[in-house]
Every structure is written in C-alpha cells, then in structure tokens.
C-alpha cells in the first residue's frame, strides 16, 4: 500500500467537497475490493474518503411498492433483514450468497454496484427488478447504470446514496459460483413483475444483461421447460480457465431454468 490521506466526512456534501479537492480521491465503502487493490499496489489514490461516517446512507425501508436500501448497507444486513425476506426473498438470498461472512459484514450494496465487477451478484437483481439508483445528483435506472465491465454511469464526484427496488410478484436468484473465488460464473435473476417477466444475467458477460429471449418464452409460459430448449448466444461471453464461453452460455440456461423452478 502506498501512503494516502484519510478522511471521514459526516455528510455527502463534505464527501463531495473532499473528492473535488483531492488530486486523485477515492471513496471507500466496505473496502473489500478497494483495499486488496491498494495492498497489491495496483492503485495509488492520494486521498481515501471513507463513507462510513456519513449519516443516512445505510438502512432498509419500505416506500410504497418499493424497498429502498441505502448504499452503505452491508450484504449481511440485507441477507438478514426481515423486511427484505418478506418483500423480496430472492434479494435476501442473493446477498447471503456473496463471499463469506467477513465479506458480507463489510461489503456494501453501493460498493458492489459502483465497482460493477462483471462477476458481482447485485447487478443481476437491480436489472431484473427494474431498480433505480439514487445519487447525490439524480436517479438512474439500473439498465442505464451498468455501462460496461467495471464501468457505471456515475460521473466524477457522484455518490450512490440508495437503490430503490420495486417489489415483484415473485423473484429468485440462482448462482453458479466460481469454485475458487465464489463470485458468479453465471447468476440468473428472474423476476415476475406486474410489467412482465424479466431475466437478468450476471457473471456471464462483460456486464449484466437481460436475456430477452428467455423473457419472451417465459412470458408465454412461465415454466422451467420454457427455457429448456433455449440457447444463450456464446458470443460476447467471458471465457477463462474456470468456464469457457460455451459453458457459460449453457449455464445461463440452466441457472435461469432453476430460478424459474424456484418461483413456479
């Protein structure tokens, strides 16, 4: 780790000001991704601005037909929340599948989505549920938020504050874990909503995407057999020592099928 200046502001405004004033400032939430990067000296920020002291960034509350979860809410808190389990059990289950207990007790919703690791779990839920991300500047629909591998729509100085998840009729997440890292090789989040069926796939491609073919098939017949014969295109899927693009394409179908089976 290289030396850096450490700040712990109490408000979003102070955090924004600190960011603006720093040469190369970086926000830190749970630090689960950022700190290993620093330890390996892969990044050299001049300033770390810890969001841990900013009030109002964490917590889970119901707002009409949506669950609003603060950016600094840990995965562990989401996984254990009675509110989440009651309203969107698939989301609580997803949070409980992230990493290990230590990671879940530190890592945050905001950190996960702002980092947008292609193998992260949350992006699947955000896109399938049609969530919106509220920042200090605006509200961004999930599908516009995740723009590419490790890339988001966030502008310089923009801080994610919360995510609003519309409550679906039913939803489920199934994950095929990378045996080593336990991140998603393929994660399928399937949601039945008033607006129709939505299927979001994480892990398989450079960033989360909707599997429209499966959505159409499931809209006609919401049953595991509806996706059985479908084949996700292997083009543009990730390929590494753990999973070829072909294998990932196959797993997209299998995980979607299993998520549907959980709901149906």
């Amino acid at each position: 780790m290289y030396d850096f200046a450490y700040h712990k502001p109490a408000s979003v405004a102070d955090a924004v000001a600190l960011l603006a004033g720093a040469d190369d400032g970086k926000l830190v939430a749970g630090g689960m991704t950022l700190l290993p990067t620093l330890k390996q000296r892969l990044a050299q920020p001049s300033d770390l601005i810890d969001l841990g002291g900013v009030s109002g960034l964490s917590g889970i509350r119901r707002e009409g037909d949506a669950l609003v979860i603060g950016a600094m809410t840990t995965h562990g808190a989401v996984a254990a929340s009675a509110e989440v389990k009651a309203a969107i059990p698939g989301l609580a289950e997803l949070a409980g599948l992230i990493g290990d207990p230590q990671v879940r007790n530190r890592g945050t919703l905001g950190g996960s989505i702002c980092n947008n690791d292609p193998a992260a779990d949350y992006p699947g839920a955000l896109v399938a549920l049609g969530a919106t991300v509220t920042t200090n500047q605006r509200t961004i629909p999930a599908e516009e938020f995740f723009t590419g591998m490790f890339e988001t729509a966030l502008e310089e100085g923009e801080i994610a504050q919360s995510v609003s998840f519309p409550i679906p009729e039913k939803s489920a997440y199934t994950k095929f874990r990378n045996p080593a890292s336990r991140y998603a090789i393929v994660g399928a989040y399937v949601a039945r909503t008033a607006a129709g069926v939505r299927v979001a796939i994480t892990g398989a491609g450079p960033t989360v995407f909707r599997w429209k073919e499966a959505e159409a098939a499931l809209s006609a017949n919401f049953a595991p057999s509806a996706v059985e014969g479908l084949k996700a295109p292997a083009t543009n899927l990730n390929s590494d020592i753990h999973a070829s693009a072909e294998y990932r394409a196959h797993l997209v179908m299998v995980m979607t099928k299993r998520a549907v089976a959980e709901i149906a």
């Binding site: 990378n178 045996p179 080593a180 890292s181 020592i241 753990h242």
Partner: peptide, 23 residues
C-alpha cells in the same frame, strides 16, 4: 479443485491467487 495452471506461452501462473486457485 486444485491445479496450478501456467500460461504456456508467457509462463505466468494463471492460478496465482485464491481468486483462481481453489483450496
């Protein structure tokens, strides 16, 4: 689970951390 995999050209260890080497 376990296997140390090298890139056959560069000789880099592709399983050089617990992200890829599965204990």
């Amino acid at each position: 689970l376990e296997g140390c995999i090298y890139d056959e050209k560069s000789g880099q260890i592709l399983t050089g951390s617990y992200m890829d080497y599965c204990m």
